[in-house]
Design a protein around this nucleic acid. Structure first.
Length: 249
DNA sequence: AACAAGACCTGCATGC
DNA sequence: TGCATGCAGGTCTTGT
């Protein structure tokens, strides 16, 4: 029970016997809607994983929850670092739940376009890198996809967020969507923990242009480390940023 | 009020 | 071999 937040009282009893009416997503939260309208809110944090199991192997040290289905299959939630969470929103109190209420627009949804992004970046004195990681600005981007989006849009991660307007905001909007769609098509990015529920790995990590490529050649402008170029790493807000100082301005 | 820094965890790679 | 250090797909809270 000691994940990022404690389980609500009577969590298992609350779920028992209910039909699952749907599974959806808001930002990085997985939402499982029950027949009475309550919603299970699940976040994988950094190291969380869901596995669909046919039988009931004894749980490992980092397995926290099994949701057992009528068929006998079970959905097992494993999370070594325990940055993930599993909680419940009562019927009618889902959008207003404190974890969901302040999220910005989903970059793959209809509420997101270049005008919206420009407006949400207006007046922000932080870096565009930090702004895109802020889930109240845009909901659902993490460190990898922010780095990749800024690279494709040729925008420096150090540029002030308020100075991403007009053509830059337009470029960035398109690149964010493209990066996410490409990553989804590839099944996501497996660095260490991440597996799909089937146990398969994602493939997008083979398509990174900049992430985790410090010192390597820039695929676009061809600058390279021996000549003083190449992909550089810097730390912003305690997180690694990878970028090409020549290509990104 | 906005922003940066620190805290929360475990596991792994690296270097001495 | 063992130990210390730094780093990792993310939020939250605290302090300036």
């Amino acid at each position: 029970p000691n994940l990022r937040i404690p389980f609500p009282d009577g969590f298992a009893e609350r779920l028992a016997g209910q039909r699952i009416d749907g599974v959806s997503r808001r930002a990085k939260y997985i939402l499982i809607t029950l027949e009475d309208g309550a919603v299970v809110i699940l976040h994988l944090g950094m190291s969380g994983r869901l596995a669909v199991l046919d039988d009931a192997p004894s749980p490992g040290p980092h397995d926290h929850v099994d949701i057992v289905l009528e068929t006998g299959k079970r959905i097992r939630f494993c999370d070594p670092r325990r940055f993930g969470l599993l909680t419940l929103a009562e019927p009618g109190a889902v959008d207003s739940h404190r974890l969901l209420a302040h999220l910005g627009p989903d970059p793959l949804g209809n509420q997101f376009n270049d005008a919206v992004l420009a407006e949400r970046l207006r007046g922000r004195g932080t870096s565009i890198k930090a702004a895109l990681l802020d889930q109240t600005v845009v909901a659902g981007l993490g460190n990898i996809y922010v780095c990749e989006s800024l690279y494709r849009a040729r925008i420096s991660p150090k540029r002030l967020a308020r100075n991403v307007q007009g053509a830059r905001a337009e470029r960035l909007t398109g690149c964010i969507r493209d990066v996410l769609n490409d990553a989804l098509a590839a099944g996501g990015s497996s660095l260490r923990d991440y597996q799909k529920p089937t146990g398969e790995l994602g493939y997008f990590q083979h398509s990174f242009d900049v992430y985790d490529r410090e010192g390597e050649r820039c695929l676009d402008c061809d600058c390279d480390a021996p000549a003083g170029g190449g992909i550089q790493r810097l730390v912003q807000g305690g997180r690694s940023t990878f970028y090409c100082p020549h290509r990104q301005r």
